[in-house]
Write a protein that binds this DNA or RNA. Structure first.
Lengths: 338, 338
DNA sequence: ATTAAAGACGGCAAAAATGCCGTAATAAGT
DNA sequence: ACTTATTACGGCATTTTTGCCGTCTTTAAT
């Protein structure tokens, strides 16, 4: 058995093992594989599944349900060094995507957040920075959550003297689409050059499949964004993420985007045409690309203003109801000062 | 013709076109393709070359020399949107690798540099930071170049009030190996955790093939390094780069590494064993991985010390003779102060 | 219940990618 | 000039992938 075949088999086992007992068919497996860098057509997956079945590593459940991994299969997976076979980076990214699997749905539920920590005394200044960013729709959605000291948020407790700002992470969108059965692939995180409030092109890109750290986080820390400038003049550089879905699912996706906007969760910057490159980024035949705002753009503005601030993306889950529109928060905050 | 085949053909044409009139055989082309993300065996390359020959896009030169691209081929390449076919990111990375093609050789020649700009008044402090970094061998080589205001370096002129510090870029090593006919692939840039002055593992990685910006540069700007700590305690986080060569060439490479050390250009942190993972990073069958110090580590230390400093990697070429050992520079500098 | 629709299988064969290997053209050494 | 080593080619056969398509289940709707 060639090196390649063995990698394919291992990867298939791995996908099945992550499905937690749910059986899956070749099509689903193929999608999953694609999102972690292994491209195999469904037919090819079936080809390998047949082998694996015969070796007792997977078992055929039913014509409708597909296959499951067997205990022997799990054992085999343990023996095979997945990192070695499927690729180290992919593996790390996998855990990352795993974290983004939970999600909201049309009405409520929990969504994925980013958290930034600021010293209490910097909050007023931070607000002043945040407001125009949201007004210009450069963030993901239009809601955020202010967390006072010693309250807890997304599983963390805010330390004394600090205030937390929870923003909505753009992978929430992935969760929503996934829940609707649309297989979405995050391809790149990058910096988009804006001119007259419109995206022109990506000036930098990092493939999600080829990195262990969230690209947008890196760009912001590295001080490569120009969110404030974009707010002021309409020209600047903001964080964004390039994603792809099957062109067939585009109509359905558009509907979902609209629904999200109604929840103040809109964040789609621009949508490409089927199979056509978008902002110079090519997409595969049969797929459509679109660009989503970086959920951290508001935080980037704070950093750019020189306000000390620590932050992290994909921090955890919080119910939708905990987030409020900036205007509302602002009013509350003003009242609390009185 | 499938999408994949057309990509393969375009990629082959692209490689040939970059060879500037020199003919090449399938083996060489295959190597080049590999280093920009397209994996095709030499036989497969020949398969496509045959097609291209028939279509007049390439021409057979001789049994010994291989093929060249024809004017028609170049035209075709112009028509085909290379970015679209071969991948946007790859293309950007290509230009980057292209820049690293020139190099030193056993005695002298030009090498590839990074440049940092500091305010004149910060120079003394910067020296104090640089010294221990080089003493601990955390930089690439043991030489650097101090460039006074308005002098020029690597094609740039240092602005008034500033001093430039030129360090040796670790891609110089690629150039040297390449010149010796060893095909080397840069796989990842990342952060290595050091304990007791020994590398333990990569804490972060970014694939060179999947990014438009130099990963190490990003990590340093993002403030994710701990070079000073490593200098002081032997434990810390430094920038490094993971590269691979064919296992067969390892002996030859070791010799070259030794020669480079004699020129104070040593920078190899650790070398793996054939086909074995190194610091948890797996390598392909028949290849050997090794880790090279980030040429920017000394600059990272300066940044960590809070000294304002702008810098860039792969800034340009400078003759070896322009670099001197830190001790020598230090002495000169002291004299100049008198 | 009965029927229709969706999803999954695997046989068969075509398309792609390679492995093996004998032959040809050079380069280098004697 | 002659021999040897090196490098590249392309024919042929194999191995991998993948497309096409008829069949079988299961779910959902009538």
């Amino acid at each position: 058995m060639s090196d390649k075949a063995s990698q394919a088999r291992t990867a298939i086992l791995k996908v099945l093992s992550e499905l937690e007992g749910h059986p899956a068919g070749a099509a689903r497996i193929s999608e999953r594989l694609a999102s972690c860098g292994v491209t195999l057509q469904p037919r090819t997956v079936r080809f390998y599944l047949l082998q694996l079945d015969r070796e007792g590593l997977t078992s055929f459940i039913s014509r409708r349900k597909g296959r499951m991994i067997t205990p022997a299969g799990r054992e085999e997976l343990g023996r095979a060094n997945v990192l070695e076979k499927v690729g180290f980076v992919q593996a790390k990214v996998d855990t990352l995507s795993y974290r983004m699997s939970l999600n909201v749905e049309s009405g409520d539920g929990e969504l994925i957040t980013n958290v930034a920590l600021l010293k209490n005394q910097d909050i007023s200044r931070a607000f002043a920075e945040l407001k125009p960013v949201f007004e210009r729709n450069l963030g993901m959605g239009d809601r955020l959550c202010i967390v006072p000291s010693s309250a807890s948020f997304a599983g963390h407790t805010i330390p004394g003297g600090y205030t937390g700002i929870g923003t909505i992470c753009s992978v929430t969108l992935n969760g929503v689409l996934l829940a609707a059965g649309i297989p979405i692939t995050s391809r790149f995180g990058g910096l988009v050059e804006m001119r007259s409030n419109r995206p022109v092109r990506f000036t930098e890109l990092i493939e999600y499949a080829g990195t262990t750290a969230d690209p947008l986080e890196m760009y912001i820390r590295a001080g490569m964004t120009r969110v404030r400038e974009c707010v002021k003049t309409g020209n600047g550089i903001i964080g964004a993420s390039f994603r792809e879905i099957p062109s067939l699912a585009m109509d359905q996706a558009s509907l979902i985007f609209k629904k999200m906007e109604k929840l103040d969760l809109g964040g789609v910057l621009t949508i490409g045409r089927p199979g056509q490159p978008l902002l110079d980024v090519p997409v595969a035949e049969g797929r459509t690309g679109f660009v989503v705002m970086g959920g951290l753009n508001p935080i980037a503005a704070i950093m750019e203003a020189g306000i000390a601030c620590t932050f992290g993306s994909l921090s955890g889950l919080e119910p939708y109801t905990r987030f409020a529109r900036l205007a509302v928060i602002f009013r509350h905050y003003m009242n609390s000062l009185r």
